[in-house]
Amino acid sequence: LAIIEAMANGKAIIASDVVGNKDCVRNGENGYLLPLDADAYADKIIQLVNDKELRTSMEKKSRALFLEEFFIENRIKYLQNQY
């Protein structure tokens, strides 16, 4: 849930490339999915710290993705339409 909470708060995400995270993070759009490699994490953290435009873009996309796919009221509407 930490990733969904970060998205709700409009944060760019840097996460491991595993099943649950792939449901939340669109690699290169609202954050990065990375292998378990400390250097890869360090590189992306530094990139986001230094590139405010990229970070802001990812933050906006995270919030939009949260509202579209994870906000409870939208999920309820989606499920009602499915059934």
Rank of each mutant, 00 (worst) to 15 (best):
D39I: 05
S62P: 06
L1E: 13
L65Y: 07
E59Y: 01
D39R: 15
L1W: 12
N30P: 00
A64W: 00
N50Y: 05
D23W: 10
I3R: 00
F71L: 14
E5Q: 13
I13K: 00
D37K: 12
F70Y: 05
L36D: 08
D37V: 11
Q47F: 15
I46E: 11
E5H: 06
L65Q: 09
A64I: 05
A38D: 13
F71W: 07
L34G: 06
A15E: 07
K60Y: 05
F71S: 05
E73P: 02
I14W: 07
R63M: 01
K61S: 10
Y32M: 10
A38N: 07
K22Y: 05
K44S: 03
F70S: 00
I4Q: 07
N50S: 11
Y32F: 15
A38Y: 04
S62I: 08
A42I: 15
A12N: 06
E69Y: 09
L54H: 11
D43F: 08
A40G: 03
A12D: 04
R26V: 11
I46G: 01
K60E: 12
A42L: 10
V19S: 15
A15L: 09
L65M: 04
R26S: 12
K61V: 04
D51I: 09
D51T: 09
I72R: 08
I3V: 15
K60H: 03
Y41T: 03
F66A: 04
V49P: 00
Y41D: 01
G10N: 07
K61M: 06
G28Y: 05
N27R: 02
D17K: 08
D43K: 15
S62C: 01
I14S: 07
D43T: 13
I4K: 01
L65H: 12
I72H: 02
G31E: 04
N27I: 04
N9P: 01
A12E: 09
T56H: 11
G10T: 08
K22E: 09
G20A: 15
L33S: 08
F70Q: 04
E5R: 10
T56L: 13
I45F: 07
A40D: 08
V49E: 03
S62M: 07
R63C: 02
I14D: 03
V25H: 01
D39N: 11
L1P: 06
V19C: 04
L1D: 14
L65N: 11
I45L: 15
L36H: 03
N27G: 03
F71A: 14
L36A: 08
A12K: 07
N21P: 00
K22R: 15
S57C: 04
A64R: 06
D37N: 12
E5V: 09
Y32T: 10
E53Q: 13
I45G: 04
L36M: 10
N9V: 08
A64K: 12
F71M: 10
N9W: 07
K61Q: 15
